[in-house]
């Protein structure tokens, strides 16, 4: 949801982190948010929910990063979290083939539920353990391409590739938001923003034509 500010645009994006337990989702996002803003920025609570403010080509971007529980038994709770998100980061462990399989399942589910509006990033984490790699680079990259996602390699331990991942994701989400705005047109967005207060949608209006049958009955 791109919210228009008074001066330049401010975008607010919701990004959801998905992936099996123990693939390093939490350390990935923690590394990202910790690195630049020190302790000052870390919110009152912990690493499950983090925010980050960015400035990309003069436009302000607020990122809200939602971590999810990756254990299999919590799989069904996914839709509660990823509903309405602009981007998803699907993390797998390069030394664990099962976790890559999980990513594939998530991609299928996300595309089914949210369509193409969501920007997907497939992330192979723990590349510092490259010698134990069980998921081949070619396989992962060709899969990502086939589902319209971008593929990244990161290491939360060595702090590699994380900055690029988020920056790239932000840019893609901005593009999506801008394309959406253009599609909507200026007039429509103005009227939408000027409309305030309660908005009533007539869902039942359609029923009236059916009443015509009474005269024939």
């Amino acid at each position: 949801m791109a919210a228009g500010g008074m001066g330049g645009k401010t975008y607010s994006f919701k990004v959801v982190l998905l992936g099996e337990g123990c693939v390093g989702k939490t350390s990935l996002v923690l590394r990202y948010c910790e690195n630049k803003f020190n302790d000052k920025h870390i919110t009152t609570l912990q690493a499950s929910f983090l925010t980050k403010k960015l400035n990309i080509t003069g436009k302000r971007v607020n990122l809200a990063i939602w971590d999810t529980a990756g254990q299999e038994r919590f799989h069904a709770l996914g839709p509660i979290y990823y509903r309405d998100s602009n981007g998803a980061i699907l993390v797998y462990d390069v030394t664990d083939e099962d976790s890559f399989q999980k990513v594939k399942n998530w991609v299928k589910e996300l595309r089914k539920m949210l369509g193409n509006e969501i920007c997907l990033c497939i992330v192979g984490n723990k590349i510092d353990l490259d010698k134990d790699r069980h998921v081949s680079v070619e396989e992962a990259e060709s899969y990502a391409e086939s589902v319209g996602a971008k593929h990244y390699h990161t290491s939360a331990k060595l702090n590699k590739g994380i900055e690029e991942l988020f920056l790239d994701l932000c840019k893609r989400m901005m593009e999506t938001a801008q394309a959406e705005e253009r599609l909507k047109g200026n007039g429509a967005s103005q009227s939408a923003s000027s409309r305030r207060g309660v908005q009533i949608v007539d869902d039942e209006l359609q029923a009236t034509p059916a009443g015509g049958c009474c005269s024939s009955g």
Binding site: M1, A2, A3, G4, P79, I80, R83, D84, N86, E117, T176, A177, E180, E181, L183, K184, S189, A192, S193, R195, R196, G197, Q199, V201
Partner: peptide, 19 residues
């Protein structure tokens, strides 16, 4: 959940979801 989301986003100018 869908109904709840519909209710709660009615006023929000959410261009990307509206379609």
């Amino acid at each position: 959940l869908n109904q709840w989301h519909r209710r709660r986003t009615l006023h929000c100018e959410q261009s990307r979801r509206s379609k």
